[in-house]
Write a protein that binds this DNA or RNA. Sequence first.
DNA 1: GGCTATACTGACATTCCTGTCAATATAACT
DNA 2: AGTTATATTGACAGGAATGTCAGTATAGCC
Lengths: 227, 227
Amino acid sequence: MSSVDKDRATTDEKPGKPPAKRIRRTAEEARRLILDAAEARLARQGPEGLRLQDIARDVGISHPAILHHFESRDGLVRALINRANNQLRDKLLAALAGDEKSDDAMDHIGHVFEVLSDRGTARLLSWLLLTGRAAEGTSEQSGHNVMGEIVEAMQQRREAYAKEHGLRKPDREDTLFTAMLAANAAFGEAIVGRQLAEAAGLNQDGLKRFRVWFAKMLNDHLDDTAE
Amino acid sequence: MSSVDKDRATTDEKPGKPPAKRIRRTAEEARRLILDAAEARLARQGPEGLRLQDIARDVGISHPAILHHFESRDGLVRALINRANNQLRDKLLAALAGDEKSDDAMDHIGHVFEVLSDRGTARLLSWLLLTGRAAEGTSEQSGHNVMGEIVEAMQQRREAYAKEHGLRKPDREDTLFTAMLAANAAFGEAIVGRQLAEAAGLNQDGLKRFRVWFAKMLNDHLDDTAE
DNA sequence: GGCTATACTGACATTCCTGTCAATATAACT
DNA sequence: AGTTATATTGACAGGAATGTCAGTATAGCC
């Protein structure tokens, strides 16, 4: 006795349940919206806030729709990882390629820092690392490549700069360490920066000064070691 | 890793129902063991691995025992936060007070870095920050105090050093920024350090060199600005 | 030894979340 | 228009996790 059509039968105008016109998107569009919502939730509430029903509500769909586009919750997570990895790689490479004209090596660091300290991305990546899910990208473990490419680009930049100005060849490990420091500090800032600044009584402008200060410090270091 | 300490069957092997002799601990001891297990799980598996039943199994008790000692799962989390905060504060203050004899300001930074980059603590704190649960400590918002105390201690140290050597008074904000950089970098390293080093083809020894390099860099900076 | 306080347990209730399925509606195409 | 492919949905199944409770056993004390 289950097949009693409750209220969805003929078009009775029940004020209670207007069948709520469906919006049918392309698969690509739907996937994008879902990933956006998931990323936003992740950034706002952390990993425990990543529930299919919540995401679905954010997008304005029902949760099985998510299961339809991504095979499972895990599939959604993997897609999220993948997209974040790719976006991060693209941004970093763009930052590296963007200021070809400038011969100031620090611009690279500065841009890398900006990209990495993006709150959403860093928090997402951090969560992945904390949960041990890193480098699950389907296409490639972009981590390796990105790190290598960045250091390589920085090193070449420094060498060119040194040659042009008749300085001695910069130490490769020094370049690597500089990049690592920038990456570490950027990640750290994305995670604890806000709390730290607040605890220190620093406002938004103070945080900006901190970045400038840091950039100058790296610059001084690079100048010193390249002398 | 399949070998979990699962065997709690007392030496007797009764086929039917060995009532499994109970171990009755003091409340304090039980709480400590539970918190230890929870912290270990959190460090190993991230926030999603924090399940009462798992923790109970680790300790060798039943999960209602945890509910008995901490009111709820949330109570356990709060206790965990509290203990981590206090431990961090103690360690930091100890690191600051420990080398009173040394007049090298960098030793402070070095110790702070060591303490902060402790994998377990940093990951725990990071998770708390990521989930937006920071500063829920019952006794006090230790975050404020610790940050303020550290900067204050560093500043006094620098001023004393400057006065003794006839240097100009160091800038307070510079001291703050130095502390922030150390904290950011330490946190970042605790989270992404391993992956980053791996991506860069750096072994354990390389990581050590990185820390030395970073300490030297900060030292140089402090010397320069204090001149 | 007996008594008491309470750390501890097994079984159950409840809630929440992922995943399945049959059915439906809509965009695209002929 | 009709037809098709598939994005989407409501309802339900299954499982897992937290929380409740009445009862049990053990350490400390007389």
